[in-house]
Amino acid sequence: MKAIAVTGANGFVGKNLVADLNLNDDYKVLPITKATPLQERDQYLKQVDFIVHLAGVNRTEDDTEYTQGNVYLLQELLGVIQENPKHPTILLSSSIHAANDTPYGRSKLEAEEVLEKFAEDNENEILIYRFPNLFGKWCNPDYNSVVATFCYHISRNAEVSVHDSNVQLTLNYIDDVVAEIKRAIKGNPTLLDNKPTVPNVLRITVGNLVKKIKVFKQSRENLTVPHLADPLEKALYSTYLSYLPEDDFSYMLPMHTDDRGSFTEFIKTVDHGQISINVSKPGVTKGNHWHHTKVEKFLVVSGKGVIRFRNIRSNEIIEYFVTGTQLEVVDVPVGYTHNIENLGDSDLITVMWANEPFNPANPDTYALEV
């Protein structure tokens, strides 16, 4: 079992990393936080095989705290690590700001130099990652993540301030960061120009970031889902939902009801069709129409019924008897008029997928008895 110490374990990256590492029985994770007693902290550092140093200061009103939290703390930890006979590998969380001449950037660069000198003197392997802007679940809004800040406020109907919508953001998603740290722990870090790096770098302007998050919020009204083939959009949507208020996880759907039952649209997409829920009362038959291009899939999940088809150029009727106790998908081809009848004593509930969202201007639906 490999023992791994994680400093800054209560921070954004630390919480995600520790939660993930704890899923693997091959690792013994020793989290270090500000609340960890010094004796316990030092005991951890003297026995582990790998150290992930995430602790540091990235926002403060007193510039001297950058040096204190990013340089002096590292020097203090290295003094203890020097006593570890295993010569553990040390992974340092640095920043792309180390290339900038700012108090924060200078402190991160100095920390890198301190660690490099330690490695030369003590033969420890080191990995220095200059992380860009990071985003994902469990990051504090109004702190150091513009994504977290925008997600938090927009989900609560608050306005967000944008000084320059054309500013380009360079991002890494937290799951990609954790995956890379795990590769490093296994001895297989990703290298770019011989330097450790997190793959899957994502880019977006501040203005487009705000637009996307607002679209996510509007999706409850228009029932759309994001373009999930886009890695950035997929990660942003997962992140946005993690910032919803806990009393606002659910939302109501408009139901079209009559004495036959109900029909409710659930999800609409631009390129993957639409999902709806159909409820038919006992004895009710719905449908009796056909389509030129629209195709559907019916899945009865409760009750029992029959789905009937007839090629509009034929008199032959085809029947499929369906029930919620044996899930069976029935495809509805074009050119076949079709209906569904409830044969049971309770509601017949059917999940329906169509290959395109309903378009009132071009419904592609033509009434014809089966």
Rank of each mutant, 00 (worst) to 15 (best):
V114C: 02
K117S: 11
F135E: 01
Y129W: 05
Y104P: 02
E116T: 15
P141W: 12
F118H: 03
D101S: 09
L109M: 14
E125I: 10
E113W: 09
S107N: 09
E123D: 14
N124S: 13
A99P: 06
N140A: 13
A98C: 14
I128M: 00
D142L: 15
N133T: 10
K137D: 14
Y104E: 00
D142V: 13
P141C: 09
E123Y: 14
K137P: 13
R106L: 14
E120Y: 12
D101V: 11
L109G: 05
Y104Q: 01
P103G: 04
G105F: 08
Y143G: 03
G136K: 04
K108V: 06
T102G: 07
I128L: 00
E116W: 07
L109N: 05
A148C: 14
E110Q: 09
Y129M: 03
N140H: 12
G105Q: 06
N100Y: 12
A111S: 14
N122M: 05
E120H: 13
V114H: 00
L127H: 07
N122K: 10
P132F: 12
S145D: 07
E120G: 12
F131L: 09
G136W: 02
P141E: 00
Y104F: 12
A148W: 05
I126Q: 06
F135N: 02
K117H: 14
N124I: 13
N133K: 05
A148Y: 07
A98H: 01
L134W: 06
F135V: 04
D121R: 10
P103F: 01
N122Y: 14
E113Y: 10
P103E: 01
L127W: 03
A148V: 09
G105C: 08
E120Q: 15
E113M: 14
A99D: 15
E110S: 07
L134N: 05
D142I: 08
Y129S: 01
N133H: 12
P132V: 08
D142H: 15
A99K: 14
R106E: 09
I126N: 05
A119W: 08
N122D: 07
D101K: 10
K108Q: 06
F131G: 02
L127N: 00
G136Q: 00
D121W: 10
L109W: 11
S107F: 09
S107I: 09
Y143N: 07
A111L: 08
Y143L: 03
L109R: 12
A148R: 05
S145L: 08
A98Y: 01
G136V: 00
R130D: 05
D101Y: 11
W138Y: 15
E123G: 10
E113I: 11
K137I: 12
A148E: 07
E112D: 07
N133G: 03
D121G: 10
A98G: 15
V114A: 00
R130Q: 15
N124H: 15
A148K: 03
E116A: 13
S145R: 01
N144D: 08
N122R: 09
R106Q: 15
R106Y: 11
E123S: 15
P103L: 03
G105H: 04
N144Q: 01
E112A: 04
L127M: 07
G105I: 08
N144I: 07
N122V: 09
V147N: 00
F118E: 02
I126S: 04
P103W: 00
N124G: 10
V146H: 03
